[in-house]
Simulated assay, not measured.
Amino acid sequence: MWRKPAFLITPLLMVAAPAASQNLTPPSHIDALVAAFTGKAIGQPGGARQAVDPRLRLTACDQGATAEWYGSQEQSVKVSCPVPGGWRVFVPVMGSERSQPVISRGDLVQVRVSGAGFSMSTRAEALQTGAVGATISVRPSYGDVRKSLSAKVLEAGVVGIDVP
């Protein structure tokens, strides 16, 4: 039986020891944060495509890591440590009905504007492609056609603007 010489293993242990002694954010913590944010487990539609690489070494985040959607199509979750010199990790999510575009650039869409005690609607042209929940730019079919508005995609062919 062949044995590995001790002099090859010792340097590896010396390199691994400092990393193990540091205060790190475990990748499983990032997995749990993404699952809580999306409401879906790893591998489910709408959840992370796969677990974060267990070899990832990130410093501990004293203020607590945050999660937010990344990209206009919400195909990734950005997990970050919001401190100076902090880190960020982008976790791809599996496609779901939420991430499939329901409005394409150039579509004529209904814009629903609502606020305290009122609601109205008008037509506009979509200037971007978007999935449900995404914010896209639209150009109203009235007034100054050079101006655009930001609106949230509510469903196929419908966007909304909430006025406080």
Rank of each mutant, 00 (worst) to 15 (best):
residue 32 A to R: 14
residue 66 T to K: 15
residue 28 S to H: 12
residue 141 S to C: 09
residue 130 G to H: 07
residue 9 I to P: 00
residue 102 V to H: 03
residue 89 V to P: 00
residue 77 V to N: 09
residue 3 R to Q: 09
residue 12 L to I: 01
residue 71 G to I: 00
residue 31 D to C: 06
residue 6 A to K: 15
residue 65 A to V: 06
residue 35 A to V: 15
residue 156 A to Y: 02
residue 99 S to A: 02
residue 65 A to I: 06
residue 79 V to R: 00
residue 100 Q to H: 09
residue 18 P to V: 10
residue 79 V to M: 03
residue 20 A to V: 13
residue 114 S to M: 10
residue 30 I to K: 05
residue 83 V to L: 02
residue 61 C to A: 03
residue 56 L to R: 09
residue 21 S to G: 05
residue 38 T to Q: 05
residue 129 T to P: 05
residue 63 Q to C: 02
residue 23 N to G: 09
residue 27 P to Q: 00
residue 157 G to S: 12
residue 74 E to C: 02
residue 2 W to R: 15
residue 101 P to E: 07
residue 157 G to W: 12
residue 108 L to M: 13
residue 85 G to V: 06
residue 1 M to H: 07
residue 6 A to F: 15
residue 99 S to Q: 06
residue 114 S to H: 12
residue 152 K to V: 15
residue 110 Q to Y: 09
residue 106 G to Q: 07
residue 114 S to T: 12
residue 164 P to C: 00
residue 6 A to H: 15
residue 1 M to S: 07
residue 11 P to R: 11
residue 130 G to Q: 11
residue 9 I to G: 00
residue 87 W to S: 03
residue 127 L to W: 05
residue 31 D to K: 08
residue 72 S to N: 14
residue 85 G to Q: 08
residue 121 S to P: 02
residue 122 T to K: 08
residue 144 D to V: 11
residue 112 R to Y: 07
residue 58 L to H: 02
residue 11 P to F: 09
residue 96 S to G: 14
residue 73 Q to R: 10
residue 28 S to N: 14
residue 152 K to I: 12
residue 134 A to S: 15
residue 52 V to I: 13
residue 59 T to S: 12
residue 138 V to E: 03
residue 136 I to S: 10
residue 143 G to T: 01
residue 145 V to A: 14
residue 62 D to V: 04
residue 57 R to S: 10
residue 41 A to T: 13
residue 12 L to R: 00
residue 164 P to W: 00
residue 46 G to Q: 04
residue 104 S to G: 04
residue 10 T to S: 04
residue 98 R to L: 14
residue 27 P to I: 03
residue 50 Q to M: 07
residue 89 V to W: 03
residue 31 D to L: 05
residue 1 M to G: 11
residue 11 P to A: 05
residue 115 G to M: 00
residue 54 P to G: 02
residue 56 L to S: 06
residue 125 E to N: 14
residue 34 V to K: 08
residue 4 K to N: 13
residue 145 V to G: 14
residue 139 R to P: 10
residue 6 A to Q: 15
residue 64 G to R: 08
residue 33 L to N: 04
residue 93 V to A: 01
residue 158 V to S: 09
residue 5 P to E: 10
residue 95 G to Q: 13
residue 84 P to S: 07
residue 123 R to V: 08
residue 2 W to A: 15
residue 71 G to L: 02
residue 101 P to R: 09
residue 139 R to C: 14
residue 29 H to V: 12
residue 33 L to F: 03
residue 121 S to V: 06
residue 88 R to M: 05
residue 110 Q to C: 05
residue 118 F to A: 10
residue 83 V to I: 08
residue 134 A to P: 12
residue 93 V to F: 06
residue 93 V to W: 04
residue 148 S to V: 11
residue 63 Q to P: 08
residue 60 A to T: 04
residue 9 I to W: 01
residue 110 Q to A: 12
residue 33 L to T: 13
residue 1 M to L: 09
residue 35 A to T: 13
residue 162 D to A: 06
residue 153 V to W: 05
residue 8 L to N: 01
residue 115 G to Q: 00
residue 18 P to H: 04
residue 114 S to E: 12
residue 127 L to A: 08
residue 6 A to D: 15
residue 55 R to M: 11
residue 92 P to A: 02
residue 145 V to Q: 14
residue 81 C to N: 01
